[in-house]
């Protein structure tokens, strides 16, 4: 290993970051190399002198108070986003629930019952026509389980009942 490579390790040795097994190797080398020995001694001396430099005490009380005040003010704001998120999530959940419930009930609520009228032959004929048109008008396939499926089934049932009732009365 060249002196330059050994010197790269000297800093680690001085600052106690060199692994134990490499430490012994370096110490052995410095004992036989004047240049590396000098550098190690110089770095140790500077390190010791730097360590003796007086340390500043803390910042003024005013600075500490400003920071503490800011920390308290900011902290009061921190819980809000979480609470706000929770509140929004709750509102969203309730809204979705209402829409779903309302959506499922909508076919029964939205459909106006077919009012009963005195049956007439013309009416019966008309009803038959209506049913025929209704079933023919369904160009798109009815998907079981969809809202439109239940709505159409309901309407059809109502119409059939009317026809049946009117037939009974004759």
């Amino acid at each position: 290993m060249s002196c330059e490579e050994w010197k790269e390790r000297i800093v680690l040795l001085v600052y106690e970051e060199l692994p134990e097994e490499k430490k012994d190797e370096l110490v052995r080398h410095t004992s036989s190399c004047t240049s590396c020995e000098e550098e190690l001694a110089a770095f140790r001396e500077i390190h010791a002198r730097l360590a003796c430099l007086p340390e500043a005490d803390g910042p003024s009380q005013g600075i500490s108070e400003t920071i503490a005040r800011e920390a308290r003010q900011r902290r009061r704001l921190f819980p809000w986003p979480a609470l706000l998120r929770l509140a929004l999530a709750s509102v969203l959940l309730v809204t979705v629930g209402i829409v779903l419930i309302h959506g499922h009930r909508q076919p029964t609520r939205a459909l106006t019952p077919i009012t009963w009228e005195e049956p007439k032959t013309a009416d019966l004929h008309n009803l038959h026509e209506q049913i025929r048109e209704f079933t023919q008008s369904k160009s798109e396939p009815l998907v079981e389980g969809s809202l439109s499926f239940y709505r159409d089934a309901y309407l059809l049932e109502q119409k059939m009942r009317n026809v049946s009732h009117q037939l009974d009365t004759f």
């Binding site: 500043a56 500490s64 503490a68 920390a71 308290r72």
Partner: peptide, 27 residues
């Protein structure tokens, strides 16, 4: 703890680094 509402936790954190950071900055 500080983020959960404990102001003293921040004070402790501040005290831990107050002198170390300030001393380093002065240097």
């Amino acid at each position: 703890n500080y983020l959960s509402g404990d102001d003293r936790a921040f004070d402790d954190l501040y005290q831990r680094y107050r002198r170390r950071l300030f001393s380093w900055l002065v240097k």
